[in-house]
Computed example of a mutant assay.
Amino acid sequence: MKAIHKQINNLLNKQNKSIQQCHIERAVLIQQQLELGCPYSKLGGQQLTVNKNLLRFKLGSYRLIIRAVNNKYIPEMLIQRKHLEQKLKRR
């Protein structure tokens, strides 16, 4: 669990975001459940059409984007909903 929490915190530090603690806890819970084999759809996630390896989860006005590769889940970005489409088009 500490490794997962560290990944989320590194993501937040890298993007210099201040986000509510409840959203951070939810992000950690989502990643833990994914690692345990829970389907992303049961956690409220959706597969992105622009890249089938990216999963999107809603966290208030933010979106958590997780990359799924070989049954590993890597948090890619935590971004405000209004900036999501623009950011994805740049990839």
Rank of each mutant, 00 (worst) to 15 (best):
L36M: 07
Q7C: 03
Q33E: 08
Q31D: 13
E25V: 03
Q32T: 07
L64N: 03
L11P: 00
I30F: 02
H83L: 14
H23R: 11
K14S: 08
A27C: 01
L48H: 08
H5T: 04
P75Y: 03
Y73P: 05
L84V: 01
T49S: 13
I74R: 10
H5R: 08
M1L: 02
L11Q: 01
L11V: 02
Q31V: 12
K87G: 09
I79K: 10
K14Q: 13
S61C: 14
E85L: 14
K52N: 15
K17L: 15
R90V: 15
H23G: 01
K82Y: 13
A27I: 03
L34M: 05
Q21C: 01
K42L: 04
I65L: 11
K72E: 10
L64I: 05
I30P: 00
Q33N: 11
I30A: 00
E35L: 10
K14H: 11
Q21K: 02
I66L: 03
L29N: 02
I4N: 06
L34H: 01
G45L: 09
R90W: 15
I65A: 07
A68I: 10
L55I: 11
Q20N: 13
R26Y: 03
F57A: 08
E85K: 15
Q7G: 00
E35I: 06
Q15M: 11
Q47S: 15
K58G: 14
N53G: 05
L11S: 05
R63I: 06
S41N: 13
G37I: 00
L48F: 12
R67P: 09
K14C: 05
K58Q: 08
N51P: 09
H83M: 11
E25K: 07
I19A: 01
R26N: 05
R63P: 02
Q33L: 01
L55P: 05
N53T: 12
L55H: 05
V69A: 06
K87F: 11
L43E: 02
M1K: 12
K82A: 13
R91L: 12
V69Y: 11
K52G: 09
Q31F: 07
L34V: 04
H83N: 13
N51W: 09
K6R: 04
Q47Y: 14
K6T: 04
L64K: 02
N51C: 14
N16C: 02
Q47I: 11
L29M: 10
V28C: 08
N71Y: 12
E35R: 00
E76D: 13
G45M: 05
L11F: 09
F57W: 02
L43P: 00
L88P: 09
Q15N: 06
G60E: 06
C22W: 05
N13M: 11
K58F: 08
F57Y: 06
F57V: 09
N51V: 09
E76K: 14
T49I: 07
N9C: 06
L12Q: 00
N53I: 04
L64T: 12
